[in-house]
C-alpha cells in the first residue's frame, strides 16, 4: 500500500521521532558517558570533557569476572528463549483454538502465576530447589522459566487475531494437526514470536531476585547479580556500574535490531484474508 506523504508531514514525523528519541535515550547516554570516565566525580564538567577511557570495561573483565557472568547469562538466556519460542507457541495455540472449560482453567493458571508477588513465592521456591537438589545449579536458572506466562498470553492474543480460515483450509486439504501447527500457523505468528523472543530474552537477561536467591556460587553468577555486587556499601561506584550496565544492554540491543524486522515484516500483504 502506498500513501503519499507531503513534505510537511515528513518533516513533522522526523521532528517528532527525534524529540522522542532524545527523551528516551538521554539517561542511557549519560550511563554510557559515565562508563567512559576515569576515576573521579561525575559532575557536568567532567561529562562534557572529551577525556575517554576504556579502563572501567577492562577492570570488569580482569578483576570482577564479567566474562564468566556474560557466558552464564548468554547460556541461560539462549536455552530459555529457545524453549519459550516452542513451548509458549504450543500452549498459546491450544489456548486460542481449543475452547473448553479445562482450557479456561489452564489459562487462569497461566495468569495466576503472574499475579502473585514474587516475595511470597520465593521461600517455597527456595525450599523446593534445595530439596530437589536443584539449588545452585543451572537447572534453577532455567527450568522454571521455560514457559513464560506473559509469552503464552502474548502469542495467544496474536493467534486469536488471525482468522482461522487458513487452518481450516489446510485441514480440508488433509494436513495433520502438527503440520498445520508448525507449517501454517507458526510462520503466521512470526511477529508475535519475535516480540516473545525479545521480551523473554530481556526479562531473563535482567532477572535478579531469583538467580540471586536460588544460586550462590561464583561459577553460576549471572550478569544482574554481578552488577548488584558492584554496588558498594555506602557509595556507588558509578563508573564501573555504568560500564557493566552498558555491557548488559548491548547484546539485547543487537538482538533487538536483528529481530525488529521480523516483528514488522512477518506477514506479506494479503496473506491474511477473510
Amino acid at each position: 500500500m502506498v500513501r503519499r506523504s507531503s513534505p510537511l508531514s515528513v518533516t513533522l514525523r522526523y521532528a517528532a521521532s527525534i524529540i522522542i528519541l532524545g527523551i528516551m535515550i538521554f539517561p542511557l547516554l549519560w550511563m554510557f558517558r559515565v562508563s567512559l570516565l576515569g576515576p573521579g566525580g561525575i559532575g557536568f564538567e567532567r561529562l562534557a570533557s572529551t577525556a575517554i577511557t576504556l579502563g572501567n570495561y577492562a577492570d570488569l573483565f580482569t578483576s570482577s569476572g564479567m566474562g564468566r557472568y556474560l557466558v552464564n547469562s548468554s547460556l541461560v538466556a539462549a536455552v530459555v528463549v529457545g524453549g519459550n519460542i516452542l513451548f509458549c507457541f504450543m500452549v498459546a495455540y491450544t489456548l486460542a483454538r481449543y475452547r473448553s472449560l479445562s482450557n479456561k482453567l489452564l489459562f487462569i493458571s497461566v495468569i495466576l502465576v503472574l499475579m502473585i508477588p514474587v516475595h511470597i513465592v520465593i521461600i517455597p521456591m527456595y525450599v523446593l530447589m534445595v530439596r530437589t537438589g536443584m539449588y545452585d545449579t543451572y537447572f534453577a536458572l532455567i527450568l522454571p522459566w521455560l514457559v513464560n506466562p506473559i509469552g503464552v498470553f502474548l502469542v495467544k492474543q496474536y493467534i486469536e487475531s488471525i482468522p482461522p480460515s487458513m487452518e481450516e483450509a489446510a485441514r480440508i486439504d488433509g494436513a495433520g494437526e502438527f503440520r498445520i501447527l508448525f507449517q501454517v500457523v507458526m510462520p503466521l505468528c512470526k511477529p508475535a514470536l519475535a516480540v516473545l523472543a525479545i521480551q523473554v530474552f530481556f526479562t531473563n537477561w535482567n532477572a535478579f531476585l531469583f538467580p540471586f536467591i536460588l544460586t550462590s556460587s561464583d561459577e553460576l553468577r549471572t550478569l544482574p547479580v554481578g552488577l548488584a555486587l558492584l554496588q558498594g556499601h555506602q557509595a556507588i561506584d558509578w563508573q564501573h556500574l555504568m560500564a557493566g550496565s552498558s555491557i548488559a544492554v548491548l547484546p539485547v540491543l543487537i538482538l533487538f535490531a536483528f529481530l525488529q524486522r521480523q516483528v514488522v515484516s512477518g506477514i506479506t500483504a494479503g496473506a491474511v484474508k477473510q
Partner: peptide, 30 residues
C-alpha cells in the same frame, strides 16, 4: 473444525509440567 482433545492436551503439556513442578507448590503454600 477444531483440534482433537488429545492434541490439545499434548500442546498444553509444557505449561502443565512447569506449573505442576515449580509453581503449584509455592502458590498453594502461600
Amino acid at each position: 473444525m477444531r483440534l482433537s482433545r488429545s492434541t490439545a492436551w499434548l500442546l498444553a503439556l509444557p505449561w502443565l509440567i512447569t506449573f505442576g513442578a515449580f509453581w503449584l507448590f509455592p502458590v498453594i503454600y502461600s
